[in-house]
Nucleic acid binder design. Structure first.
Length: 846
RNA sequence: GCGGGCGUGAUGGAAUGGUAGACAUAUCGGACUUAAAAUCCGAAGGCCCUUGUGCCGUGUGGGUUCGAGUCCCACCGCCCGUACCA
């Protein structure tokens, strides 16, 4: 009997698949198409277990679809632009381009031994001029269609390094290299008009039935549609041109409780005051310290500055209230100004308490509640609540039923108008960095901003740049930067900002349908291959990447690069969990943590005997060293073992913890299947229990198929374990056992394709198991004559009966009550009710 | 802060509102072996000197239901996202 030798088997079958081009996707009308895509990787240089899990899941789907007669497109590429390449250039020298392409070569070499059913002929990297040149063409079309514009936006500015920082480079409000306090600074930047599509992107979520409900909900909340009242306060003693302050509120029903007005430090009025008053200038400067993330802004201590300006309440002009500049008000949302109602909003309550502002309660939680509240009472928006205070007419005395009636009332009294707003902001795409797609425009001294001519694309990145000083090398590259105007031929400067890498990943799925086309897409290819039938990736992309892609698909339709049918590019989405591992830690002399690689730890100790502290399992990361290199695992056990393990232990949407024992167990199981196949291959003659074995086989076909089709990979694998045990114990004849073994190999083939091919061949089958038709369960073999029903008394299990599957309810009830332990439990008591769920359970209620 | 998710034996997890713990790991016992490894077979949620088809048990507290791990409300803990990480 031959041993299981994955290294030899796997290389041989990968070779066979390649020779026969089984995974090459070619348009064909005689089979239904199926496009399966996993989010493409960033070429960091090493594949990690997260990649293995992600691509194995996609591979299971792709291989199953291939076996069920589909024309499958399963491509792979590289999301290759981005900061890490520049960071590497700064840290270790070298060039981002060389670093990136070197990494791609390394990662491809690490990925190929996994035996994924990928059409490698379609591979591309987003940093290929061939790709980003088409992206520039797309940008120019979008510019022409009015989908792109320029405006000011704030960035993180490092005043020491004199450079823009990414959020990631801001640590506790300080620059990661200089350690200097980061400032917010405004720059003119390019924006995509995604906000024009707010309503459409929101409404279309309903149609995405095969997306996880939580992702749709997250997108819905992100778009953040709200209905409210926009109106103006008239000011007292304000500078010229600011006799009104426009505010937006989603709670106009609390307007009677207003006690102050707050404006953003970036509000036009604040900017005027800043120029006149040094104290205000200092306060605004204080507000502009720290990072630009929403989290940092929201978590910062709420600060306000009394401008001395007053406003009049629109319903009670005698009531004047102060205008504060406040750091928590965003210029980007609403009008950049709010009214504060401390009694009915927790944040306003805290602000009012801090600055000793009146807290005017207009609602009370209940009729008999005490008016002095310890915290804000936030009345429900839709219910009528007890109204406490009013001074401007009957309506305020009785309260409102819902926000809409409050808006109607305000409109009728000439105070503002109802408006719909969205939280979604336009997408700023400018990055002040080298390693990205150049924005294809020039700045002409006479013509202003001029798009580059399409025949000059791609605007290619220059290679001769240096990273020895902070900032964007393109800014310093005179011969690249200085150019002539495509319009007038005069002196001009190239735009030196590059595009956000999210742009690259917002249309790559469409490019895979015709990766070498001389236009961004090819009409026939997108018509045939789009949409992506199954998209798979991490939950961390639930909002930005997926929303941007949905926007881009619409923009590409408008500019003629995608058909209308592809404006929702991903028919089905699956968000998979991460691969985690325990963290091993010791402490150095100063008590700082020192991390250790899993391969250096045996039984909780290092090689020198030092005991390590085991910290809760977390996402594998270089910094925590809790990384297991797939290359080592494939080397030790083979790809099939790695594939089997990442699918087996946890449901795919949840995190899976990598354990050495789990990997070992997966290997042992595959070796067991191997020797079982060897034994069965040599069997001859008849036996006993053929029918039982074949029934179990059909049940397994049914369960595994269902599991594979519904992302229940872990459950499918559990069924395969169970069936392997059944087959191992079976005394059935040679024919039945061989049939069962071949079926087992087929059912395993999406997960362990190499082992399955080898078994298929060794048991004398012609052709590839990869292209053999998927087994179908015979419904007649799935039904059983009898059924065992548990019997509960008052919800507690007291016994069971085995009855004919089609026995009537009355008869089942009679037999249930006669069951010995049930009768004993009842002890003569007469059941009040007996619930019989056919084929499931009986519950006797006493 | 805000938005979303998750929480079940020693461990990973299974369970269309219907027998909680499938399957696997670790553990323990047995077979084989001079011995060990490998392999094969088996036990196993907790409790009790009541061993009973007994009681308790799916983060905590409440609720809906004949019946709740599953649905609803509140709380606790952890994870993801938060617009320049990809």
């Amino acid at each position: 009997m031959q041993r299981y030798t994955p290294a030899e088997i796997e290389a041989r079958w990968q070779d066979a698949w390649e020779k026969k081009s089984v995974f090459k996707a070619v348009r064909s009308e005689d089979k239904p198409k199926y496009y399966v895509l996993e989010m493409f990787p960033y070429p960091s240089g090493r594949i990690h277990m997260g990649h293995v899990r992600n691509y194995t899941m996609g591979d299971v789907i792709a291989r199953h679809k291939l076996a069920t007669g589909h024309n499958v497109l399963h491509p792979m590429g590289w999301d290759a632009f981005g900061m890490p390449a520049e960071n590497a250039a700064m840290a270790i020298g070298g060039h981002p381009k060389d670093w990136t392409y070197g990494n791609i070569d390394d990662m491809r070499a690490q990925m190929k031994p996994l035996g994924l059913s990928i059409d490698w002929s379609r591979e591309f990297a987003t940093c290929d001029p061939e790709y980003y040149g088409q992206q520039q063409a797309l940008f120019l079309d979008m510019l022409k269609a009015g989908l792109v514009y320029r405006k000011e936006a704030v960035v993180n500015w490092d005043p020491v390094d004199m450079t823009v920082l990414a959020n990631e480079q801001v640590i506790d409000g300080k620059g990661w290299r200089s350690g200097a306090e980061v400032e917010r600074r405004a720059l003119t930047q390019w924006f995509f008009k995604i906000s024009d599509f707010s309503e459409e992107l929101l409404e279309a979520l309903d149609g995405l039935e095969n997306w996880p409900a939580k992702v749709r909900l997250m997108q819905e909340n992100w778009i953040g549609k709200s209905r409210g009242l926009q109106f103006a306060f008239s000011t007292v003693d304000a500078p010229d041109g600011h006799d009104r302050i426009e505010v937006y509120t989603t709670r106009p029903d609390t307007l009677m409780g207003a006690s102050f007005v707050g404006i953003s430090p970036d509000h036009p009025l604040a900017k005027v005051l800043e120029r006149e008053n040094p104290q205000i200038a200092a306060f605004c400067a204080e507000c502009r310290r720290g990072g630009t993330t929403e989290e940092a802004i929201e978590k910062a201590e709420k600060l306000g500055f009394d401008t001395g300006i007053k406003v009049r309440h629109p319903f009670d002009t005698a009531h004047e209230m102060p205008v504060y500049i406040a750091n928590f008000i965003l210029m980007d949302y609403g009008t950049g100004a709010i009214f504060g109602c401390p009694a009915h909003d927790q944040r306003d309550f805290e602000f009012a308490t801090k600055y000793d502002l009146p807290i005017i309660s207009t609602y009370l939680p209940s009729e008999d509640a005490d008016e002095a509240l310890a915290a804000a009472y936030v009345p429900p928006k839709t219910e009528k609540v007890f109204y406490n205070r009013g001074f401007a007419g009957e309506q305020w005395q009785t309260g409102f039923e819902g926000i809409e009636t409050a808006i109607d009332f305000c409109e009728a009294n000439g105070v503002g108008q109802g408006v719909t707003k969205y939280r979604l902001r336009d997408w700023g795409l400018s990055r002040q960095r080298y390693w990205g797609c150049p924005i294809p425009v020039v700045h002409c001294e006479t013509c202003g901003v001029v798009p580059e001519n399409k025949e000059n694309l791609p605007v290619e990145l220059p290679y001769d740049v240096s990273f020895d000083t902070p900032g964007n090398p393109l800014d310093r590259h005179a011969t690249w930067r200085d150019t002539t105007c495509p319009s007038c031929g005069g002196k001009a400067l190239r735009e030196t900002d590059t595009m956000d890498t999210f742009v690259d990943s917002s249309w790559y799925f469409a490019r895979f349908t015709a990766p070498r086309a001389g236009t961004p897409t090819e009409a026939e290819d997108v018509a045939y291959w789009m949409n992506v039938d199954q998209y798979i990736g991490g939950i961390e992309h639930a909002i930005l990447h997926l929303l941007y892609s949905r926007f881009f698909a619409r923009a590409m339709h408008i500019t003629g690069h995608l058909p209308k049918s592809a404006i929702e590019p991903f028919d089905a989405l699956f968000t998979q969990g991460m691969v985690t591992h325990e963290i091993y830690q010791t402490r150095d002399a100063k008590g700082r943590p020192v991390y250790h690689l899993p391969e250096d730890v045996t039984d909780g100790r290092l090689a020198d005997g030092t005991e390590v502290e085991i910290i809760r399992s977390a996402k594998m990361s270089k910094s925590k060293k809790n990384v297991v290199d797939p290359v080592n695992i494939i080397g030790a056990y083979g790809a099939d073992t790695a594939r089997w393990f990442v699918l087996s232990d946890s449901p795919p949407e949840r995190d899976v913890e990598w354990t050495a024992s789990g990997a070992e167990a997966a290997y042992k199981h595959l070796a067991r299947v191997w020797s079982l196949a060897e034994r069965i291959g040599g069997m001859e003659g008849a036996g006993e229990g053929d029918d039982d074995l074949l029934r179990a086989m059909h049940r397994t076909i049914h369960d595994v198929t269902l599991g594979v089709e519904s992302f229940g990979f872990n459950a499918a694998i559990a069924k395969l374990y169970a069936f392997t045990a059944t087959l191992q114990k079976s005394k059935a004849g040679a024919d039945a056992q061989k049939q069962a073994m071949l079926t087992l190999a087929q059912l395993m083939s999406p997960m362990t394709p190499h082992l399955s091919e080898e078994i298929w061949a060794r048991l004398g089958q012609d052709g590839l198991i990869t292209t053999a038709p998927w087994p179908v369960a015979d419904p007649a073999m799935l039904v059983s004559d009898t059924v065992t029903l548990p019997i509960q008394v008052n919800g507690k299990r007291r016994g069971e009966i085995t009855v004919a599957a089609d026995l009537g309810k009355d008869e089942v009830e009679r037999l249930a009550l006669e069951e010995a332990n049930v009768a004993r439990t009842l002890d003569g008591a007469v059941p009040r009710k007996v619930i019989v769920v056919p084929g499931r359970i009986v519950n006797v209620v006493v």
